[in-house]
Design a protein around this nucleic acid. Structure first.
Length: 424
RNA sequence: GUGGAUGUAGCUCAGUUGGCAGAGCCCCUGGUUGUGGUCCAGGUGGUCGUGGGUUCGAAUCCCAUCAUCCACCCCA
């Protein structure tokens, strides 16, 4: 069929059983996050462009080429959020939560937008479940946050998840490392592919997430960033590792894990699925001790993560459900009615039941046979038949669809009669 | 932004060397005046992604274009 309107590239329609599966996950995740002491936050999907420029950072792919940015008639530049952390920090400051005692812990499940080329596990509108814990610099919190991320996967029975862990230092120790790294790369520039050379000067750390084998070999010859941490960062990192050990959480040290956003300090981590060569990165996060201050607040340490919902579901391996084969919502009682007067009578009868159970009234006017077929598809336990004869006698036919037994009930006794069958 | 694959019925897909547009599923009707999942019979539904070109003739060959998927890049 030649469709007049189509879905935008990189977006999806979720319906019926697919939507139920999402709801199933969302319910479990909300419960887990609740148990870790997080409260929900919902923020607008659009923000001033500047918020993301300053936080995510110019020079990152997200800001340079993936943002949905547009201008209002008043000339203001707005952006559909490509990630959530900046918005949460903005909301934290805007609502005066700096005065809140203790650590402010938020969770969210929300759509994000990035103008990427879509592929398996990657969409232009995608969804993340994540947390931000604002107000504590303790490495123990890092470990708890990481533990919570793993708990989200456990809650939906996701297996084969690997935790990658690293520390990328702080403003005190990272510049020295970057200088050294930059000099090393300059000296070996011929081993860096041309497409990546731009990064050597602008953001040498970004070279680490290049998949080019030559670059990886080159970087392997260089000292890992974890060897260059200052005393504070080193102690922090060791405590994170030790605390994960206390919790029995297995992890892999990965000194090449730098993450694609500029605001991270110290701890960075990623949760990956070893399955094939698909989009294996299911979740990522880390500490961002400078971001709140950068956004105009008081110096406030924080840590968080986000999990890709589409990727997680993809990893669970469930086939996506064909909408046409997917069941319509199930009901307890299906009311068949033949013509319009019967439909009116049927609707009035249904109204007597809806405070008690799920009822569908068939208003298609199809043959009774077809209506009963639909009743079965909807998994109805009971069929009510409302026709001319029933109207005349002020009754309804009650048919138990599992046994085939059929009785007549006075309309005034309908609820009792229905309860008798459903509760038997 | 780069590369590859694929576009035929609502869905999954056949379609030979260029020669009348097909199957299964779904849906509808009947077999049963108003009684179900099975069965039987019948039926609806297609600008063959779109636009050009070659040809007596194009779903089929050529060109362009759009869309989808996959991969790169990067990330969730």
């Amino acid at each position: 069929m030649n469709l007049k309107y189509r879905r935008l590239k990189g977006t999806r329609d979720l319906m019926l059983e697919e939507a139920e599966r999402w709801a199933w996950c969302e319910e479990r995740w909300a419960d887990v996050l609740d148990r870790y002491g997080y409260g929900e936050i919902r923020t607008p999907v659009i923000e001033p462009t500047e918020l993301f420029l300053r936080s995510v950072g110019e020079g990152t792919d997200i800001v340079d080429k993936e943002m949905y940015t547009f201008e209002t008639k008043g000339g203001e530049s707005l952006t559909l959020r490509p990630e959530m952390t900046a918005s949460v920090v903005r909301a934290y400051l805007e609502n005066g939560l700096t005065r809140q005692p203790g650590t402010v812990k938020f969770w969210y499940m929300a759509p994000m937008f990035r103008h990427d080329r879509p592929q398996a596990g990657r969409y232009r509108q995608f969804h993340q479940v994540g947390v931000e814990a604002i107000g504590s610099a303790s490495p123990v919190l890092d470990a708890e946050v990481i533990r919570a991320a793993l708990a989200l996967f456990e809650a939906v029975d996701a297996r084969g998840i690997t935790l990658l862990l690293n520390s990328i230092g702080c403003p005190a120790c990272r510049p020295a490392f970057l200088d050294e790294l930059g000099a090393f790369l300059e000296a070996n520039l011929e081993r860096v592919p041309e497409t990546l050379r731009g990064r050597v000067a602008t953001n040498p750390l970004r070279l680490y997430d290049a998949k080019d084998d030559g670059v990886q070999e080159l970087l392997a010859d260089f000292r890992p960033i974890t060897d260059c941490l200052c005393a504070g960062c080193r102690a922090h990192h060791e405590t994170v590792r030790g605390t994960l050990g206390d919790l029995g959480v297995a992890f892999v040290d990965d000194p090449t894990l730098v993450r694609g956003l500029d605001y991270y300090t110290r701890t960075t981590f990623e949760l990956t699925a070893a399955s094939g060569r698909k989009q294996s990165s299911l979740a990522g996060g880390g500490r961002y001790d400078s971001l709140v201050e950068q956004c105009g607040g008081p110096p406030t340490p924080a840590v968080g993560f986000s999990v890709g919902i589409e990727r997680t579901l993809l990893h669970l391996g469930d086939e996506t459900v064909d909408p046409q084969r997917s069941r319509q919502s199930t009901v307890d009682v299906y009311v068949a009615a033949l013509d319009e007067p019967a439909q009116r009578y049927a609707l009035a009868a249904a109204d007597l039941l809806r405070g008690y159970c799920r009822v569908e009234v068939d208003t298609t006017g199809r043959a009774l046979k077809a209506q009963i077929k639909s009743a079965n598809l909807r998994r109805a336990r009971l069929l009510l038949v409302a026709g001319e004869q029933e109207q005349a006698a002020d009754t309804l036919q009650l048919k138990d669809l599992t046994t085939g037994e059929q009785t007549t009930a006075a309309r005034s006794q309908l609820l009792a009669a229905v309860r008798e069958v459903l509760e038997a």
